[in-house]
Design a binder for these strands. Sequence first.
DNA 1: CTTCTTGTTCTAGTTTGATCGAACAAGTGA
DNA 2: TCACTTGTTCGATCAAACTAGAACAAGAAG
Lengths: 98, 98
Amino acid sequence: MKAYTHPDLDQVSLPQVMQALSDPCRISIMQALMAEEELACNALPVTVAKATLSHHMAVLRDAGLILTRVEGTKCLNSVRMEAFEDYFPGLLDLLKAA
Amino acid sequence: MKAYTHPDLDQVSLPQVMQALSDPCRISIMQALMAEEELACNALPVTVAKATLSHHMAVLRDAGLILTRVEGTKCLNSVRMEAFEDYFPGLLDLLKAA
DNA sequence: CTTCTTGTTCTAGTTTGATCGAACAAGTGA
DNA sequence: TCACTTGTTCGATCAAACTAGAACAAGAAG
């Protein structure tokens, strides 16, 4: 499929994270991942074209918020916990409370 | 000057808050207000034209993050603490840590 | 090998947002 | 009254982002 690259969290800025989470669609994706541990793209609660979804996932990945791994033709996504625990304290609570 | 309106926090969405904080300039403004209690617009640590600053302040105000009150020809801005304490838990930590 | 599924990339269109100059409104003070 | 300060609003410009169709790559399944 593709070699997914995940950024160093040192190099992710707060504005970038905020920007990534400023879209309702992407917030829904994060909340689904927080509830389900690991999900393929087609299992996410969105109603956009697959090209659009691919874009949204790349934005979240580049912001250091999710991890993506390949399994067959699918890619499985999960929350990048280290980002929330070590780099952006409070962000997890913020998403949970919404 | 003007009658500033502040939104009900019930009607502010998380994407709107995230969008408001997705700009480095606005994050700097919030951090300055968190440190100084109350500041006039011209005392904020920004280097943009006053029309631009006025826009940024309106974005923060509409997102429920700041309060603005008039005093003479100046307007004094402060953090809207109820938003952080009751509606967006974790957000204050997120801004402090950055 | 062929077909289906999954997801990416390219390209393009539309929308949103940041920026700033200019004009304006309102209070301050001489 | 007149000049100054502070901040808003309007209009325009430019960059960034959301959206999706079409073509493509790669594994899975028959």
